[in-house]
Amino acid sequence: MKLSEIVKILRMDFASLGIEDAEITAINSLQNASGSELSYCDSEKNEKFIADSKACAVLVKKGVEVPKNIIKVECVNPHLAFAILSKYFAKPLIREPRPSAIAKSAQIAKGVYIGSNTQIGERVVICAGAYIGDDVVIGDDCVIHPGVVIYNDTIIGARCHILANAVIGSDGFGYAHRSDGTHVKIYHNGNVVLEDEVEIGANTTIDRAVFGSTIISSCTKIDNLVQIGHNCELGENCLIVSQVGLAGSTILGRNVVLGGQAGSGGHVRVGDFVQVAARGGISKDLPAGKNFAGHPIMELKEWFKLQAKIARFFKDK
C-alpha cells in the first residue's frame, strides 16, 4: 500500500505533509521494522528507539525528532492511527489452500479441522473437535485434547500437552481510543510459540503478539483457566497456577511460580526463581530469588508481618 493511501485512510492531506511517497508492506515495531515497513511512536519512553529503527516511515506526534532516512508522518494520535491501520495490514483468517504435511504416525480423530500449510509431527495425537489453523507447526509427540483451538501461525515444540478447550493464538485485548470515548480494535499480526514439553491447562487462553511472538519457554506448566496476554514471555520451568492473569508484555524469568489468581499489570518483569503467593498483584518489576505476596505487592515476610498487625488490631478492638 502506498504511503499516500495510508495518509488518506487517516483522513490527512498528503500534500500538506510535505513528504515523499513510498510503498509500505506492513506495520511493525520500531525495533523490528524493515526498510519497507511503517512504524509508530506513541510515548516519550519509546522515542529512544526511533534513531536506530530501520523503518521506512514512522507515525509520530508533532515535534518528535526523526532521522532523515526515515519518513516522518506527524499525526495527533499515533497509537490511534496505528490501530486504524492494523485492520488494513491484518493477515487473513482463512488463507489460500495449500497442502499440509501430516506424519503417518500421527493419530487424528474424526471431527478435527486442519488448515492450510500446517505441519504435524510424528506420533502426534489430536482428539475430536480440535481446530488447527493455517501455517501451524506441531512438533513430535504432542497431545492435543478435545475442543482445543490453535490459531494461524502458532508454533508448538515437541512433547507438549494442550488440554481441553484451550485457545492458543487468538487476538490480544488491545484497543486505541477516540476522543469521543469509542474504541478501535488493534489487529494482532504476531503469533504464539510454545517450546518443548510445555503443558497448557483446560480453558486456558494464550494471546498472539501484536508484533513478534508470545513465548512460553520449554518445560513451563500452565494450569486451567489461565489468561496469558499478548507479547508475554514466560521463561523455562515456570509453574502458573489456576486463574492467573498476565497482562500484555509481562516477562517472567525461569522457574517463576505464580499462585492461584495472582496477576500482573502490563510491561513488568519478574526475575528468576520468584514465587508469588495466591492473589498477589504484580504491579512493578520483581527482583530474582525472592517470595512475594499481597496487593500492593511486597516481600512475603513483610506481608506476614502486616497480616499479624491487622489481626492484632482487630483483636484489640
Rank of each mutant, 00 (worst) to 15 (best):
K62W: 07
A128V: 14
L10Y: 06
Q275C: 13
I186L: 11
T154F: 04
A308C: 02
N191G: 03
G212Q: 07
Q243K: 14
A247N: 08
A293E: 02
S4T: 12
A83K: 08
M12Y: 13
F89V: 01
A83E: 03
V270T: 08
L93H: 04
G169K: 01
G121V: 11
A15H: 03
I155S: 03
V244Y: 10
A57Q: 11
G133K: 03
H177M: 11
I297G: 09
A106Y: 08
Y113S: 14
H161Q: 15
I50L: 12
V124A: 03
V125E: 11
Q107K: 14
Q31V: 08
I206N: 00
I144M: 09
Q119G: 05
G139Q: 02
G263L: 12
L234D: 01
V58D: 10
G35Y: 04
I144E: 04
S283W: 00
L38I: 11
S217A: 13
V76R: 14
D180A: 04
A57D: 12
I94F: 11
I94D: 09
S53H: 04
R312I: 01
L10N: 03
A278I: 08
G139H: 02
D196K: 03
V125M: 08
I297V: 15
D140E: 15
I168V: 14
L286E: 02
E47Q: 15
I19N: 07
K68C: 10
K104C: 07
G133C: 05
I162L: 14
H79R: 15
T25A: 14
G260C: 14
L286Y: 07
D52A: 15
A83W: 11
D134F: 08
G172N: 01
Y187M: 12
S105R: 13
C41W: 08
S213Y: 00
D180G: 07
G169C: 00
P97F: 09
N152E: 08
